[in-house]
Design a binder for these strands. Structure first.
Lengths: 129, 129
DNA sequence: CGGTATCCGTCACGATACTG
DNA sequence: CAGTATCGTGACGGATACCG
């Protein structure tokens, strides 16, 4: 088997027609990463999620939550009262992924100062041409 | 200060007007995650990256690589020969982030079977209405 | 070979209004 | 309160052509 056995990394995600790619695009979407990150804090209602994630519209939030629910990463619980009350939380499947996302946050925020310097340098060089 | 001191997580990424958010959107973009993942294997030429990432157009690849280069996550080295030869690799700043992305791949691929079941169940319930 | 420029379609997204 | 429906815009993204 040699190399085949270990398959060092080379995920199938790189294949356009692979189910994992779709999940990746839900998770790593503009709002997906933020929703998962927010839900890591615990169960939240629709409006609370909306408030916690800055700048998301109702429509996009509903859409994002549905995609994540369909993938089994987020649990949706409706309480039949008036006015309606809907709770969102991470599933056991979704939690590790959300934690991975949180790890990315951490790294990116730590890197932010360096990134800003890099951007400034880059833009400067461009202007100098 | 109690809770305030630790600031459990609650990254500034959730603020729409924050530099980290922009970086996050580059990294967690459709092609950004894939490019970073591919470069983790080592230095690659433009064409090699294009081949490794399934389904990306030249335009989007160039655009993605530029954004990551501007953020200081990817290093671009031009060798002035004919025909042109351009190498791309991760910077010290970019590598940890790329590794975080790889971690997400792993998690998502492990989850894929469960996700497919969840999707089937979800779609079934919808149809049953 | 590794881009950049241009054109153009599509769909992601936001704003608004409405329902249960 | 938590959505769904509809519509309009603009950015994203692909195809093509051309330059260094």
């Amino acid at each position: 088997m040699g190399v085949t056995e270990a398959t060092p990394f080379r995920a199938n995600v790189f294949d356009p027609n692979c189910p994992g790619r779709g999940v990746m695009e839900h998770v790593a979407s503009r709002w997906g990463v933020l929703v998962l990150g927010v839900l890591l804090d615990g169960t939240l209602r629709f409006g609370e999620v909306r408030q916690a994630v800055g700048g998301v519209s109702e429509k996009m939030l509903a859409q994002t939550l549905q995609a994540l629910e369909r993938d089994g990463l987020v649990h949706r619980e409706v309480r039949p009262v008036i006015p309606p009350h809907v709770d969102y939380s991470l599933t056991d499947l979704g939690r590790p992924i959300a934690e991975g996302v949180r790890g990315l946050y951490r790294l990116i925020e730590e890197s932010t100062p360096s990134v800003l310097v890099a951007q400034a340098t880059f833009d400067e060089r461009r202007a100098a041409r």
